[in-house]
Design a protein around this nucleic acid. Structure first.
Lengths: 163, 163
DNA sequence: CTACCTTCGTTAGTGCCACTAACGTTCATG
DNA sequence: CATGAACGTTAGTGGCACTAACGAAGGTAG
């Protein structure tokens, strides 16, 4: 006696924002599962890549490169430096800043994460042909480039406190 | 003197899972902003649509239709019924269940939300041509259909408690 | 030089969402 | 009638996006 199982209504299934949100959940799960085997999260990966690609930088610079908020960056760097993947030293030329440097250990860690991430992408895109995979990537780049990706007001003003 | 602003590394920008996550943030922001003008969130919309499309249902049924967890459904229905958009009555034929019914007020509310959602989709997809919009939707449907969209283990076992 | 504004790192806290665990109740079966 | 499953509900976790505020330091204008 099936009481009409009635799956997701078509009207919901075809709403782009919902499709994207659903895909994001799937992608996140895939990525997080794998990264967890190395005790990492996606932010760790993002920061390490940013360092490997563009070299040492201040925390604010890393924040801009990765899209992670300055405030959240602190904890990520705490974790990364606790594992000796990065070093965090005061910048001698601008004493407001810290210089974040990728250590050799960090670089090797990144290599491991890299293969995990690549695996996840492969599984994520498995249902699509290579041509479709390219299409999807291009479409998403067009979409995220147009709307400014993240950062509502990350680089606002912050100096003058309430008073 | 610009100390080399150095934006997001290409290696990060082209990772599909990151692109999807970015798109999801944008989409969510667009949708949430609009829904907020009616004091609603996306879950409210999903539930109302599910009711309008497939008729009255139990909470577990709605959970399956929308992808919202049974546990989170409770709060959503509390809010919707507080605004008289739905009614929640015990099911006479199966006393474990509640029957959730869309009220006329709820139906009118849904109509308003519908236009807000449509607006958001339009703005979200604005950078793409109509053909590309169709492509993106199709690709995402293929992707989410393949991996089972949500529900890691929503319909697990739950009856026998620990001890 | 001295105000003033900005940037930087940091702490604290909010809200949404995905997800888990447990529990009492009710139903369906063997 | 005992067992197991489904249902509604409460409570709690963890990640992420995002805001607010602050002290310390740098840049610039007057």
């Amino acid at each position: 006696m099936s009481p009409t199982p009635e799956p997701t209504p078509a009207r919901l299934r075809t709403i782009p924002s919902r499709l994207i949100a659903g895909a994001a959940v799937i992608a996140d799960r895939l990525v997080s599962e794998r990264l967890a085997t190395e005790g990492a999260r996606k932010w760790h990966f993002a920061v390490l890549v940013a360092l490997a690609e563009a070299g040492a930088a201040s925390q604010a610079e890393l924040s801009r490169r990765t899209g992670i908020y300055r405030s959240d960056m602190v904890a990520v760097l705490n974790e990364l430096s606790a594992a000796s993947y990065i070093r965090r030293e005061p910048d001698p030329v601008d004493r407001r800043r810290n210089v974040i440097t990728l250590t050799p250990v960090g670089r090797r860690h990144l290599e491991r994460l890299d293969t995990l991430i690549a695996d996840a992408q492969r599984e994520l895109l498995a249902p699509l042909t290579p041509a479709q995979q390219g299409q999807l990537t291009d479409l998403l780049i067009a979409l995220t480039d147009h709307h400014g990706v993240g950062h509502t007001g990350q680089s606002h003003a912050a100096g003058g406190r309430a008073r």
